[in-house]
Computed example of a mutant assay.
Amino acid sequence: MDLIAASAPAAALRGSVTLYLLVNAAHVLGIGLLVGAIATLDLRLLGLFRASALGQLAPPLVRVAATGLGLAAVTGLALFSTRPGTYLENPAFLAKLALLVLALGNLALLHAGRPWREALADGPVGARLRLAAAVSLAAWLGALLAGRWIGFLQ
């Protein structure tokens, strides 16, 4: 952990309020893109927005979510590098990581299955997809809340 905290990017973030602010703002933007797109897609799978075909709605939402995930991951790692030991001792941070693993695992299972491909081709949205959407929504929102909780436990 000392090696991460001693890295040049971590030192730059700790030494510049402006740089830290910009990276933190980019992290929030990434989370907004990610959770906004995923929540919209999950809600569609759960039965809302039925006027919008899933096959048309899903591809751009998945790209927006992937962009948000990439931005949030890169900036999150940068923020983590400033105090890795402190974060690893924070129960909210550990909860956030666990929820991210759950959310990403659920995502991988969802996209690997035939029901997802069939739903994108305007097939039915069955119970398996609705369950995956509910788990997804709960996991991503839980990770968001745990992330906000981190600062209250430091």
Rank of each mutant, 00 (worst) to 15 (best):
L29P: 05
A139R: 08
P84C: 08
W149K: 07
L61I: 01
L57F: 07
T82H: 07
D2K: 15
L97E: 09
R128T: 14
N24A: 11
R130L: 04
L102M: 13
Y20D: 10
T82Y: 01
L97K: 04
G123A: 12
F93C: 01
I38T: 14
W116G: 03
A139M: 07
E118I: 14
L54S: 09
L41G: 09
V62K: 03
E118H: 12
L129T: 02
L61D: 01
G142H: 05
G123R: 10
L144M: 11
A108M: 02
A26S: 13
G47Y: 11
L99N: 02
L99R: 01
A143E: 02
A121E: 02
E89L: 15
I150M: 14
A95R: 07
H111C: 00
R130P: 04
G147M: 01
L41I: 07
L57S: 05
A92D: 06
F80A: 08
V28E: 06
L33T: 03
T75Y: 00
A6P: 10
M1C: 14
A121H: 07
T82W: 01
L71H: 07
L61Q: 00
L131Q: 02
W149M: 14
A134M: 04
L145S: 08
A8S: 11
P60Q: 00
R148M: 12
I31R: 01
R114I: 13
V135E: 03
A25W: 09
T82P: 08
F80C: 01
A138T: 06
R50W: 11
A39Q: 00
D122A: 13
V62N: 02
R83Y: 12
L13R: 03
I150T: 10
W140Q: 09
L21R: 11
F49T: 15
D2T: 15
G36D: 13
G30V: 09
L46D: 13
L79D: 04
A65E: 04
L71S: 08
V101K: 01
L33G: 13
G32F: 10
P9G: 00
L153Q: 12
A37D: 10
Y87V: 06
V35K: 02
P115L: 07
P60G: 00
A12E: 00
P9I: 02
L153G: 06
P124S: 12
L13V: 06
H111G: 03
R50Y: 09
A26C: 14
A66K: 05
L109W: 14
F93M: 06
N106Q: 11
G123T: 10
L141E: 04
T67G: 13
N106W: 04
A134N: 05
L43A: 14
V62A: 12
L88S: 10
L100M: 11
A78I: 05
